[in-house]
Design a protein around this nucleic acid. Structure first.
Lengths: 129, 129
DNA sequence: GCATCTATATGCGTGTGACATATACAGGAG
DNA sequence: CTCCTGTATATGTCACACGCATATAGATGC
């Protein structure tokens, strides 16, 4: 059974269709708003938003760096406590504003998908899956 | 006021975030299922699914060709009737199956967005926009 | 002849993400 | 001491998707 996985080399005929561009960004921001965290932690928390078990570290770290460049998050090195040093991120005011902006975009997206599904059900009545 | 436009060089800070990869594909298939049509016609009908007035012709024609390569649509040249010749597309059985597959993917996507918005509203209570 | 509308098609550049790999510290097992 | 595993961050590479620009061409009207 196809699980509509997000992957380029999967067998799903609409492979990649589950990708919403840069959706990881608002997810990271919201997680950090709720609680400052480091990348590795976020990597695991992302499952909450439907990112597969073990999201791509590259995706997470690169987006965190990029958000920091733009001033939407800030970070500080955290040594001690065992294990390698880690960078603890927190959202800035600008980052908080960005969350709200993304929320609007996501509402728009959801409406588009809802419109499609409505039209789909109109075209295929009696098809309950 | 920012309209969360789908564009790479817009001013929207989540520019591109409104893009759902290959979302145009199920839209084309559903339009063609409802009524066989040629590309130029689809180009205009796509507004129904939230594609901006005057969607990119390149996007439409390339995807139609690709769908035909994979056997999800078929086409025949249509001459006569004034104006240049046009290609009339229709969905195949395989294409119809693909619509259902995409519908599942889109439901999954919608759930992900809904989860995000739920978490967002939990984190920012009393924020009605 | 020239502009316009209809209609299809291709070229180019950039951003994005999946996947792979590199690096390094710490703790435990053998 | 060495090896392995787990934690943690970072970069390289590659393919692809799309926005934007451009090319081509028939038909119609001025």
């Amino acid at each position: 059974m196809c699980n509509h996985e997000v992957s380029r080399q999967g067998t799903c005929p609409c492979s990649g269709g589950a990708r919403m561009e840069r959706f990881v960004v608002p997810c990271l921001l919201l997680l950090l708003y709720r609680k400052p965290a480091h990348g590795y932690e976020l990597l695991e928390s992302l499952t909450e938003f439907g990112f597969g078990e073990g999201a791509d570290p590259g995706l997470v770290y690169r987006n965190l760096r990029r958000l920091e460049e733009k001033g939407h998050v800030s970070s500080e090195w955290e040594t001690g406590g065992g294990g390698p040093a880690r960078r603890r991120y927190r959202v800035t005011q600008s980052g908080e504003a960005l969350i709200h902006h993304w929320a609007e975009t996501i509402k728009t997206n959801m409406n588009r998908l809802a419109v499609f599904l409505q039209r789909y059900q109109d075209s295929f009545p009696g098809r309950e899956s």
